[in-house]
Computed example of a mutant assay.
Amino acid sequence: MEKEIAAKRAVMEITQEVMEELVQATGFHDAYNDLVIAENALIEWSHSTIKHEKSYRENRAAIDAMYENVNSSPEKRQELIQLSMKIR
C-alpha cells in the first residue's frame, strides 16, 4: 500500500477520496468490519452465557454496567473481549 501511495503521490495529491480507494483496494476496510462484527457477536454471546453463573447473579449491576459501557473506550472493549474468550 505504501508503494501505491507513493506512486499516486507522484502524479496527484493524496486526498481523502484517494486514500479511501486505496484502503478499499487492500481489503482492510472489509476485514476491519468483519472483525468488529465477530467481536460484537462474542461480546453478546458472553453476556448471555455469563447470566447463568452464580457470580453474575451476585454482581449483576456491575457486570451489566461493564457490558453497557463496552464501547466507551478501546481499552474497555479489549478487556471485555479478553474476558469473553475465557468463558467456557
Rank of each mutant, 00 (worst) to 15 (best):
M1Y: 06
E4F: 05
L83Q: 10
E53H: 11
S72T: 12
R77E: 00
S55F: 12
A25R: 14
A38K: 13
H29N: 13
Y67N: 04
A61C: 00
E39S: 06
M66K: 15
L22C: 07
R9N: 09
I5Y: 12
V36P: 01
R9K: 15
K54V: 05
I50K: 13
S46F: 03
A6R: 13
A41T: 09
H47D: 02
V18G: 07
Q24G: 03
S73G: 00
Q82C: 00
L80M: 13
I50M: 14
G27W: 07
I37Y: 07
Q82S: 09
T49W: 08
D64V: 07
L83F: 11
N40H: 06
K86C: 02
M1V: 10
N40V: 01
Y67K: 10
S72A: 09
E2Q: 12
R9H: 12
V18E: 06
R77W: 00
M66T: 15
Q16N: 09
I37H: 09
L42I: 15
I37R: 15
R77P: 00
L35H: 09
D30S: 09
V11F: 05
Y67E: 08
E21N: 13
Q16H: 08
D30I: 04
I37W: 03
Y67W: 10
A38W: 03
Q78N: 12
V11C: 04
R77Q: 06
V36R: 14
H52M: 08
Y56P: 03
W45I: 00
D64A: 08
H29Y: 09
K86P: 01
S72L: 06
K8E: 08
L42R: 13
E13W: 03
I81F: 01
V36G: 02
S48K: 15
E44S: 13
R60G: 01
A62C: 04
N33C: 11
A38R: 12
R77F: 00
A31H: 08
K76I: 04
R60V: 05
V23C: 06
Q24C: 03
E13V: 13
H29T: 06
D34M: 05
T49S: 14
V70D: 00
S46W: 02
D30F: 03
I81W: 00
I43W: 05
S72F: 04
E58P: 05
N69S: 14
A6K: 15
P74H: 01
E53N: 12
A41L: 10
M19N: 10
V18A: 14
S48E: 11
S46T: 11
M85G: 09
A7G: 01
M19K: 12
I87M: 08
M66A: 15
S46A: 14
L22V: 06
K3R: 14
P74D: 00
R88I: 02
Y32E: 07
D64Y: 07
L35Y: 07
L83N: 10
A10C: 02
E75A: 14
E79A: 11
E44Q: 09
T26W: 10
H52L: 08
T26A: 09
E2F: 11
E13T: 14
H52N: 14
Y67M: 06
A7H: 05
A6L: 14
I63D: 06
Q78G: 13
H52E: 09
K51L: 03
E2H: 07
M1H: 11
V23E: 08
N40F: 02
Y32D: 02
